[in-house]
Nucleic acid binder design. Sequence first.
DNA 1: ATGACAACTCGAAGTTGA
Length: 262
Amino acid sequence: MLIATWNINGVKARLDALLAWLDERSPDIACLQEIKSVDENFPRQAIEERGYHVETHGQKGFNGVALLSKMAPTAVDRGLPGDETDEHARYIEGVWETDSGPLRVASLYLPNGNPIDTPKFAYKLAWMERLIAHARAALEREEPLVLAGDYNVIPQRADAAFPDNWLGDALFQPESRAAFRRLMNLGLTDALRASTDADGTYTFWDYQAGAWQKNNGIRIDHLLLSPEAQERLVSVGIDKHVRAWEKPSDHVPVVVELADQP
DNA sequence: ATGACAACTCGAAGTTGA
């Protein structure tokens, strides 16, 4: 069972790359972020022709998340609970009935939060509090759960090529990192860090200033696993080569393999 | 210090991103 997360930075602009990656990787569940599309305009046909079910939670122009899956989900929830006034499309969660019981997977796009002296940073921190509350409740099910997405948080210095460059940035603020740790401390496992302590495991390279060519990357796309999912963790991979494709996203896919049985 | 890139937008130049 392969579960992937990928911020595609626009599904219209990335459709060729998305289809090529689906053909190459054949993930069972793919969590997409920044589809930048309303639900009606999502190019579902080309994806369904490849055998995937498509569940979207989009909005006009920016944000937007989606779940692609070989099996049809038995339930889908859109939006992160905790603030009725929040209209950003940043969270979608599905449940799949597997031979060994239910599997729950969320695709999330955590707010960027820059600049830090604006309401955008407060919105980021408030969104993280809502995510913590939601994760706490979800963990009480004691079932396999994967919270996958673009967290817009650099957890540690080893997760950036030049960490000092990010000291004033919302992605590396002490408050952002502390909230991420409190989320982890609910009992979640960072899948990538469960498999390696190596630095250089980046998932994002800015389009600007030759960041890719200089390997000036950061690790901000994460798959967090409940204990019941962590028990099944087989391997983690970063599809770094996708960053060198024509018209790439600035993020690359991260993929975990979970065993079918505990 | 600024802008660099890129995608999107009822369609130019502004917004958003990280």
